[in-house]
Amino acid sequence: MADEPDPKLSVPVGMFEDIEDLKARNAALTSQVAALAEQLRALAEGGDAEPGEASDNETAAGDQAAAEGDTDEEAWQYPPFILLLDPPAYDDELRALIEWVEGVLVPGYLAEPSADARWCHLWFEHPVAVARLHAAWLAWQELTDPASCGYTGPSVWHRDHMDPALRELRASTGPFGGCTKGEHKIEHRLPSLVPSAWTHGED
Rank of each mutant, 00 (worst) to 15 (best):
D70I: 12
R25D: 10
V33F: 05
T59P: 00
N26K: 15
R95L: 02
D18W: 13
A75H: 05
L85G: 06
F16N: 08
N57T: 01
T59H: 01
T30C: 09
Y78N: 07
F81S: 14
K23E: 02
E58F: 04
A54I: 08
F16H: 08
T59R: 11
P51H: 01
N57P: 01
L83G: 01
G52H: 05
E53Y: 03
D56F: 00
A42I: 01
A37Q: 15
L36F: 04
L85Q: 05
Q39C: 13
D21R: 14
D21V: 06
L22D: 14
A61V: 01
A96E: 09
E17L: 06
A66W: 09
E74G: 06
Q64M: 13
E93R: 09
T30G: 15
A34D: 09
W76N: 09
D48A: 10
L40P: 05
E73K: 14
G62I: 06
S31T: 12
W76E: 10
G14S: 15
A42T: 02
A24M: 07
E50K: 10
P51F: 01
Q39I: 02
E45C: 00
S55P: 02
E53H: 08
G46W: 05
A60T: 06
R41G: 04
A67M: 09
Q77W: 11
D70E: 11
Q39Y: 03
R25A: 10
L97F: 00
A28N: 05
Q32H: 10
K23W: 13
A75N: 03
L97Q: 02
R41E: 10
E45V: 03
L40Q: 11
L22R: 08
T71H: 07
L36E: 07
D91M: 07
A28P: 12
G14H: 13
D21G: 06
A44P: 00
A65T: 11
